[in-house]
Amino acid sequence: MEHGQAEAVLHPHAIISQLKKNGVTHVVWLPDSETNFMYQQLMEDPALELIPVAREGETMAIAAGLWVGGKRPVALIQNTGIFESGDSIRGLGLDVNQPLVMLVGYRGWDRHGVSRDSAAKFTEHIIHAWGINYYLVETDEDASRISLAVEEAERTSKPVAVLVGTEFGA
């Protein structure tokens, strides 16, 4: 493997340091294979409170309560969970002007080929349909896009998505 390729990975600390830099207090999440690599470090970091949910539609509602109560949460779910969460994104995200950053594990995403996974096929179409902007994060170098998402969510008073690609490291 060439040196450049070896560097092109996404490490947990790159994302977690972005969350902390932006004053994120809570991570409301349901584990998925694309973002599982962050789990241990999230669990061990006292600056971020992890709130596990039973199903993804809870995340936007819990985040809304945290936000109203003065905290700054993010949601961390898989793209399949985005499909499940439609009514929550509408009712307690867009309709109430919640500046929620949703980190979304991009299952099936493949920059270099054609994905056969319908989860990937529909993800961006669905997010577009809500009029929600999104950023793609695949490597440590991309992680600063999380700051852009936080800034945009606050400025526009609406949810912004960050799609987390699959090229992650340990």
Binding site: V28, A61, I62, V68, G70, K71, P73, G91
Partner: peptide, 22 residues
């Protein structure tokens, strides 16, 4: 008071977030 009409079924989830924040 916060009436939660949208996001059907999720008022208790909203309340959980509020309780953790306060």
């Amino acid at each position: 008071d916060v009436p939660v009409g949208g996001a059907m079924g999720k008022a208790s989830s909203f309340a959980l977030g509020l309780a953790l924040a306060q």
